[in-house]
């Protein structure tokens, strides 16, 4: 039973990684940049929900929605102020800027909300479902997390495959100049990608803190890096890849933790290295032919 328990916990944690990884991978796909501040947007989302439900007594769902709104705006502002002016710059400059934004968010949170950990109240309560006479426990949070992940995956697949705006997004990620010739506003499309990714980050932040309730300014940092790993693992730029990578990474991490808590992160990154050695484009990534 403990194997099954671990598997469920792994899928649940992996679902959070997957939701975060979607933000990384969509932004990379379209803006060709790694938004290392993405993890810290998660933290902001969690704080917003924490204060909304705790201090202002809003119902949990309202807290989540408010967090999504705040993060959406935050993501678009970050893109507009920090990344857009660097659109023509070297990718290294953008990368360093993203790291700078990450520190900026963490330290702003430190100033505003102090360093002491807040105890996050789960938005779905602390209940659980017990199966097999109590041997197998599935928390409500885990169920909601996995469901949220599935719904987001389906919604994104529909959006990018069926809607005009979603298709325009794919067109932009393939060839920006050609997309412009079609009349697609590339700047607006990039901004919208950041908006979607950041809204997802808010959801991920709330779900993450509902499972692991300690909330600090650095809360988003390590999950952010792991989700980035998941995105690379699954094939950066690929939406199903981010899902697969996230869930696999969560499962690997939980099993490694069950084996030995101290080495779980090492195992996670070792797996990444092995995958990249064998298949440099990630599990579902496509080899990109550089255009000349």
């Amino acid at each position: 039973m403990s194997i099954l328990n671990n598997l469920i916990n792994g899928i649940s944690l992996g679902s959070v990684y997957a939701i975060i990884a979607l933000g990384y991978t969509m932004v990379y796909g379209i803006a060709k940049m790694l938004n290392f501040a993405h993890g810290d947007v998660i933290m902001v989302g969690a704080y917003v929900c924490f204060f909304a439900t705790g201090q202002f007594g809003l119902p949990p769902l309202a807290g989540v929605l408010l967090a999504m709104v705040v993060c959406t705006v935050l993501g678009m502002v970050i893109e507009r102020l920090a990344y857009k002016p660097l659109r023509q710059s070297a990718s290294l400059a953008v990368l360093i800027t993203a790291i700078g934004v990450s520190y900026f968010l963490q330290n702003s949170a430190l100033l505003l909300w102090k360093s002491d950990p807040k105890v996050f109240t789960s938005v779905v309560g602390t209940g659980s479902v017990k199966l097999f006479g109590g041997e197998l426990t599935i928390t409500h949070v885990a169920i909601v997390t996995v469901l949220a992940c599935v719904v987001i995956m389906l919604a994104l697949t529909w959006f990018t495959g069926r809607t005009k705006m979603g298709k325009a997004m794919r067109a932009c990620s393939e060839d920006k100049a050609a997309a412009q010739l079609m009349g697609i506003d590339v700047d607006r499309t990039i901004s919208m990608t950041f908006a979607i990714g950041s809204a997802l980050a808010a959801i991920a932040g709330v779900l993450l803190c509902s499972t692991y309730p300690s909330l600090m300014p650095t809360t988003g940092s390590l999950p952010g890096i792991k989700a980035f790993t998941a995105a690379v693992f699954g094939g950066i730029g690929s939406i199903p890849g981010a899902m697969l990578g996230g869930i696999l990474l969560g499962i690997i991490e939980i099993f490694a933790k069950a084996f030995n808590t101290n080495i779980s992160d090492a195992v996670v990154f070792a797996v990444l290295i092995v995958v990249l050695l064998v298949k440099p484009t990630g599990l579902l990534g496509k080899a990109v032919r550089e255009k000349v």
Binding site: K167, R170, A171, E174, D175, A177, A178, L181, K286, K291
Partner: peptide, 13 residues
């Protein structure tokens, strides 16, 4: 409307 050099169709669509 412009048909760009090298066609530039969206390969994955």
């Amino acid at each position: 409307a412009q048909v760009p050099e090298g066609r530039r169709v969206f390969q994955q669509m």
